[in-house]
């Protein structure tokens, strides 16, 4: 699993990247009450706002970690946004995307580096 400075995690699965937010990010956001996911099939560029996540406190944007295409979204989250608090690094993934420029993955942190980043 790789981590971004935007507190997203990426996990490779069947040739695509599964993307979600970290446990740390979910704790900071507080209780998540609404999630707006991107369209499947959408072509996105790194740092595009692809997900809107609202907690009891505020709205936040989740950015595309790399260039690519959204191939699948976790539509179960729309009815159960609280899953992001319950299992942010597991069940509550946001979307799966293809990666068009693998070199963009190189800057991401491993788990140890991410833990140091948030320490």
């Amino acid at each position: 699993m790789k981590f971004t400075e935007e507190h997203e995690w990426l996990r490779e699965e069947d040739g695509v990247m599964v993307v979600g937010i970290t446990t740390h990010a979910a704790e900071q956001l507080g209780d998540v009450v609404f999630i707006e996911l991107p369209e499947e099939g959408a072509t996105v560029s790194k740092d595009d706002e692809v997900v809107v996540i609202e907690s009891v406190k505020a709205a936040s944007d989740i950015l595309a970690p790399v260039d690519g295409e959204i191939v699948e979204v976790n539509s179960a989250l729309a009815d159960n946004p609280g899953a992001v608090n319950d299992d942010p690094q597991g069940e509550a993934w946001f979307f799966k995307m293809s990666v068009s420029d693998a070199s963009q993955m190189e800057e991401f942190m491993d788990e140890a580096a991410y833990q140091a980043f948030i320490a």
Partner: peptide, 9 residues
């Protein structure tokens, strides 16, 4: 603003 229980609970 909140305790460990969290705003919702």
């Amino acid at each position: 603003v909140q305790y460990p229980l969290g705003v919702l609970k």
